[in-house]
Every structure is written in structure tokens, then in C-alpha cells.
């Protein structure tokens, strides 16, 4: 059960976010358990990505409070917060240069170097060959970019990892490779993982817990098995639509 015996990595208390006059998130109250994999599902425009951007400190809530490890998010230095809460976005943006350069970017931002050994370790962990390190990042396929994006986020050794629809544009084989990778990262490093996905099969098989979001609200939350038998009629309709 998702009880308070499990510690919260991130907690939300009546969080609202507005962009201009438009309310993107409405009164979100809930939490993500530590060291587990939580999936976020829901239709497009539900506010899932906005929630992640709040957790990484790229934006701030209009009202309400967010706690990371029981500390208010505002009490963290933004740079330290973003190293603690890593984010890999669907776009998997790369800067021009080699795979090695992109991988070393988080270290370069700290004025440090990424050792060759560590670079090889990270690139292997995400399922890419060492020979990729000297390739141009722009020449990578969608799946390879996503893997590199995850590896790059791991350089900072984040305690919490936010993954935003990283498999949505990938073929079945690449999807499975990344699913295995997520489980491996969670097991190997004990990283708390939050994963936005449109794929309910993924949410059921990979996620320990699930958040269902709709129209900027948290509609239902609990163990992933809730997706098999949701209580909320809106979630029932959504699940039915996704699985048909």
C-alpha cells in the first residue's frame, strides 16, 4: 500500500500553477514515494510536464508548497536542487558536439572533467556502446538520444529522476530497452524515479505507484494496479480509451 510508512521524496500541498490567466495545475496535493518508481499517466494537457518542471525548479508554483525530502523547495539553492532532482525531457535536447561532450556537460558546468572511465560506465549503463562517445550527438537516432539524455542526467547522481515521456516516439524494441534501463537504475542506485508515460502497459509493469492526472488535477493515485480497476469514472473512461 502507498502509506506514510513509505517516505516521501516529493510532496505537494495545494499546488496551483498559472500561466498568465490560464490555470495549468489546480490544487495538487499528493506525494511521490522515495526509492520507488512512480508513473504519471493522463491525457495530453493534464499538466504532467508542468509538475516535473516545478520539481526541478525550472518554474515555481503560483500558490501552494512543494517539499523535497521534507524541506520546502524554496529553501534549496536552485543549482543544488537541479542536481538533486534530475530531469530528462521528451525532446532530449542536445548541444552541438560529440556524445562525450554532451555526457560531460553536467561536470563541465561544475568546472570539472568527466573521467574516461566514468563516461564509459555511464554510456554502457544506458545500453550504448563505448564507440558512441566520439560520435556527433546530432547523428544519433531518437532512441539513442533518449538513452544519452538519461545518461547525462545520471552524471549528477540525482537522488530523484524525472523522466518525461522518454519512450513515446520509440519503436517497441527501444521502448523495452529503456524500460529495463529504468528498472536497472532504480535497483542499482536506489534512485527515486517519476516517469510520465502514455503507455498504460508500461505504467502497470514498471511502476510501483501511479498518479492519474486530468485537466490539471490529480484524479487518482495509488499502487499501479489501480489502473486495472480505477474507481473514478473519468479514469475508467481514460483507461478504457487507452487500452482499446
Amino acid at each position: 500500500m502507498m502509506t506514510k510508512d513509505t517516505q516521501a521524496a516529493i510532496q505537494f500541498s495545494h499546488v496551483t500553477f498559472k500561466s498568465g490567466e490560464q490555470e495549468i495545475l489546480h490544487d495538487i496535493t499528493g506525494w511521490f514515494p522515495r526509492n520507488r518508481i512512480t508513473t504519471l499517466v493522463g491525457p495530453s494537457g493534464a499538466g504532467k510536464t508542468t509538475l516535473f518542471r516545478l520539481c526541478n525548479g525550472l518554474i515555481s508554483p503560483t500558490s501552494g508548497d512543494i517539499y523535497i525530502d521534507d524541506r520546502k523547495i524554496e529553501s534549496y539553492d536552485p543549482v543544488q536542487l537541479r542536481r538533486k532532482v534530475g530531469i530528462a525531457l521528451q525532446s532530449a535536447t542536445m548541444v552541438s558536439g560529440t556524445v562525450r561532450y554532451n555526457l560531460a556537460l553536467p561536470m563541465e558546468l561544475q568546472g570539472k572533467e568527466l573521467s574516461d572511465e566514468r563516461a564509459k560506465e555511464l554510456i554502457t549503463v544506458v545500453g550504448l556502446d563505448e564507440s558512441f562517445l566520439e560520435r556527433k550527438a546530432k547523428d544519433l537516432s531518437g532512441g539513442q538520444r533518449q538513452k544519452l539524455s538519461i545518461a547525462r542526467t545520471l552524471v549528477n547522481q540525482p537522488e530523484i529522476l524525472l523522466l518525461d515521456e522518454i519512450t513515446s516516439s520509440l519503436d517497441r524494441v527501444s521502448q523495452q530497452e529503456i524500460e529495463e534501463l529504468i528498472v536497472r537504475i532504480n535497483e542499482k542506485y536506489g534512485t527515486t524515479i517519476m516517469w510520465i508515460t502514455h503507455n498504460l502497459r508500461q505504467a502497470l509493469s514498471i511502476g510501483d505507484y501511479t498518479w492519474v492526472m486530468m485537466d490539471g488535477e490529480l484524479v487518482e493515485t495509488g499502487e499501479s494496479s489501480l489502473l486495472k480497476n480505477p474507481q473514478n469514472p473519468r479514469v475508467q473512461t481514460f483507461v478504457k480509451g487507452e487500452t482499446e
Binding site: 526541478n56 537541479r82 525532446s91 553536467p106 558546468l109
Partner: peptide, 12 residues
Amino acid sequence: DETELILSLGGT
């Protein structure tokens, strides 16, 4: 996107 990427990775 690139600017936000660097911020998200802990850049100033």
C-alpha cells in the same frame, strides 16, 4: 530548449 537544458542540469 538548450538554455533550459543547461539550467535543468544545474548550470547557472
